[in-house]
Amino acid sequence: MASQGTKRSYEQMETDGERQNATEIRASVGKMIDGIGRFYIQMCTELKLSDYEGRLIQNSLTIERMVLSAFDERRNKYLEEHPSAGKDPKKTGGPIYKRVDRKWMRELVLYDKEEIRRIWRQANNGDDATAGLTHMMIWHSNLNDTTYQRTRALVRTGMDPRMCSLMQGSTLPRRSGAAGAAVKGVGTMVMELIRMIKRGINDRNFWRGENGRKTRSAYERMCNILKGKFQTAAQRAMMDQVRESRNPGNAEIEDLIFLARSALILRGSVAHKSCLPACVYGPAVASGYDFEKEGYSLVGIDPFKLLQNSQVYSLIRPNENPAHKSQLVWMACNSAAFEDLRVLSFIRGTKVSPRGKLSTRGVQIASNENMDAMESSTLELRSRYWAIRTRSGGNTNQQRASAGQISVQPAFSVQRNLPFDKPTIMAAFTGNTEGRTSDMRAEIIRMMEGAKPEEMSFQGRGVFELSDERAANPIVPSFDMSNEGSYFFGDNAEEYDN
């Protein structure tokens, strides 16, 4: 993207840094990872977990959730003011799984939030270390993106479920800051804005008074975040219109849905970061690795190297396929839920299948599930090659597409044709070009129609051997075009429920 120079890199967003050079960025990201790792080690000690239990991804998720809940100030305040039966607002906890007599047992633990905050700050040299908290939120978000298709949420806001490739980060909490905003897809931002506008339509006082002023500035800020994701002048001009509207209503909703559809071809720039579970960072720190000293990046080879040398386990339900569970977590670790499966298959070195073909449910185990038949197995999170994460949407291309997802959002900077089903997408653009945004709409449609099938995206960008740390010898991959490109292809993934 041309304006790259004016933006802070995501590592800076990730670490609240002012302008830093590459070495400083690597050190501050490393410091953040160190903090998460030290916190995780301490929690495993508190909970008396064995090494194996500490490497269980379900335990990692519970521990991450506990610290996120302990620092969720708004919710904590709300819980104190609106006490609900049987919930102690000062405590947080969740299921911890232990191996007892050759069987997995679930144990519900409860801790004072104050105590968890103390352990977290102690692991982070006394700081609140917001960057580390956001990092864990993005890992949870990436896992949700890989596990669930947001059909219901899309339909509720009037969008087409086939636009799911635009929904990265749709389950990120509001408090995820600049680093969170960077990884949100165009569809996620559109959905947040539509929800806001709908509230304004239904509630006369939404934009009024002292609160209304705050609401208005939040609305304009979200519009600017979305505008910054678009790469064409016409899309940005249309966002200006939406932002400046005196009284946002149905016309703005129409414009936003139009823009979301246009992003299936004229893709937005959305950041991709490899955020790993805390149970990967903990053992690495415990083994003596100093992330701050060595430096770390979320968008280069580092996460690949770390996963190459990590042992992570997962509980497996009786009829689940461990290899499929591994694929789910591998995609989440690489922030690749909406990437082209052919690119992923090449990088991973084994075939990556669409969601609907995987015999696996989510990673988390519900409290009512029976533990008797639970097994555990090693997650295979290694890769054959590594590639640089991208934040450009890439230019655009036609490809055989599917009944489910009709476009992709690249996660890796790797040369390819970008699949999208042009006739299906263009069919949504018939007729409606009147109104105050008509010239911009016409211009956007013209650009979409001009998108050429034979153009290559990320020209000359390749993948790298894991021994090639400096990215000196790019390998331009070859793809098996007979395979499906979309992950949520004609899909039956479970729906995400809060």
Results as ranks from 00 to 15, higher is better:
Y281H: 10
L307G: 06
L466S: 01
E339L: 03
Y111L: 09
D302T: 03
K357E: 13
Q4S: 14
E369Q: 07
N224W: 09
P453W: 15
A178Q: 12
V408R: 00
R221A: 02
E81H: 10
L110I: 15
L256F: 08
E495H: 07
I225M: 11
G295C: 11
S50R: 09
K357Y: 09
I425P: 00
L154A: 00
G132L: 06
P410V: 05
L418K: 01
G249N: 07
I265E: 00
L259H: 05
G35F: 09
A387Q: 03
K452E: 06
L341N: 06
G169Y: 05
V242D: 09
I33G: 13
A472E: 12
I197A: 14
G209M: 06
S438Q: 06
I119R: 01
G349C: 04
R436Y: 03
S345Q: 10
G462F: 09
A366R: 02
T378D: 02
R199P: 05
M222Q: 02
M426E: 00
M331T: 07
R342G: 15
N125S: 13
R65I: 03
T23E: 00
L110A: 01
L259V: 15
A451S: 00
E369A: 06
Q399M: 04
L466C: 02
I301S: 13
R117F: 08
F429V: 01
S297Q: 03
A179I: 05
G132P: 05
W207D: 05
M371K: 07
L298H: 08
L172G: 01
E380Q: 15
V463D: 10
K113N: 08
F230C: 11
T360W: 01
V299C: 06
Y40Q: 11
K357F: 04
T146N: 13
H135S: 06
T6F: 00
D128V: 11
D160M: 09
S9F: 13
S245F: 01
E495Q: 08
T396H: 14
R384E: 03
A428H: 15
H135P: 08
Y97E: 11
I96Q: 01
E292W: 10
G349H: 13
R348M: 06
A131S: 15
V29I: 15
A22G: 02
R150P: 10
N250L: 07
S50P: 14
E244C: 04
R384C: 13
F230G: 02
K7D: 00
Y111Q: 06
F258K: 09
Y219N: 10
Q149R: 13
M222P: 00
P161F: 00
S287Q: 11
I425G: 00
T215P: 02
M222C: 10
T360V: 15
E24G: 01
N211C: 15
E454S: 12
T232D: 03
V312Y: 04
S274L: 05
M66R: 11
F488S: 08
C223H: 11
S274R: 04
R19C: 08
W139Q: 08
R261F: 08
W104R: 09
Q58T: 07
S69L: 04
R317H: 07
V280K: 11
M137I: 13
R204C: 11
R150F: 05
N370P: 14
L47H: 07
P248E: 04
R55C: 12
A286I: 08
Y40T: 09
Y111R: 00
P354G: 05
Q364N: 05
Q409Y: 12
F458H: 13
K90D: 01
N124F: 10
G349M: 05
M13T: 03
V100E: 14
M136S: 02
R121M: 12
I138N: 07
L226I: 10
E294M: 06
A181G: 14
W207Q: 09
R102H: 14
E192G: 09
Y78Q: 02
E494K: 15
G132F: 03
S69Y: 07
G462K: 03
D255C: 03
G93T: 07
S457N: 15
P95F: 01
K227S: 10
E495S: 14
T350M: 15
G349L: 13
G177C: 06
E495C: 01
C223M: 13
C279P: 03
N498Y: 01
P474A: 15
M371T: 06
E46K: 06
M13E: 08
S141P: 11
G228Y: 03
V414A: 12
I33A: 14
M196N: 06
G288R: 15
M66Q: 11
Q58H: 12
E14K: 14
R470M: 08
R195C: 10
L193Q: 14
D34L: 14
R470Q: 03
P95Q: 06
L68S: 12
D160P: 03
Q459S: 11
S245Y: 05
R55I: 07
V299T: 09
A85G: 13
D128W: 00
S335D: 05
S326C: 12
E375N: 11
K7V: 02
M448P: 03
T45S: 14
V414L: 15
Y281I: 09
G5R: 15
D51W: 01
V343D: 04
G362C: 01
A427G: 15
P173H: 10
E495M: 11
G126M: 11
N492H: 06
R361C: 00
N76H: 01
R150E: 09
K87I: 05
P322G: 07
G35I: 09
Y385E: 01
Y78A: 06
K113F: 07
T134M: 09
E24N: 04
V476I: 00
Q20L: 05
I406N: 14
D128G: 10
P248S: 12
Q409H: 13
T62R: 06
I265K: 02
N144T: 08
S170H: 07
E115R: 09
P89V: 13
T130R: 12
E18K: 03
S314F: 04
F458G: 01
Q122N: 04
Q4L: 14
Q58N: 14
R74Q: 12
G393C: 08
M137C: 08
G35E: 07
L266I: 15
E80C: 13
N21F: 00
N368P: 07
S69T: 11
G249K: 07
A182Y: 11
M191Y: 13
T45Y: 02
N397G: 00
T146W: 01
G393D: 01
I365Y: 01
N202Q: 12
L379Y: 09
E14M: 02
V280Q: 08
G54S: 14
R74W: 07
K198V: 08
Q311W: 00
Y289F: 12
T62W: 03
A251W: 06
E294V: 13
E46W: 07
E11C: 10
D72W: 13
S141Q: 01
V242L: 06
H324E: 03
I257V: 06
L328H: 11
V343H: 00
S84H: 11
F412P: 00
F346A: 13
R26L: 04
Y148A: 04
A181F: 15
M191I: 10
M66E: 08
Y385T: 06
G86A: 11
R342T: 04
G187W: 07
G268K: 03
M331Q: 12
R55F: 07
W139E: 06
Q4H: 04
R175H: 02
E380Y: 07
R55W: 02
S377V: 14
G300R: 09
L172F: 10
P318M: 11
A332M: 13
R74D: 12
T424G: 00
L298S: 11
M167A: 02
S335A: 15
E220K: 09
Y97G: 09
R174N: 12
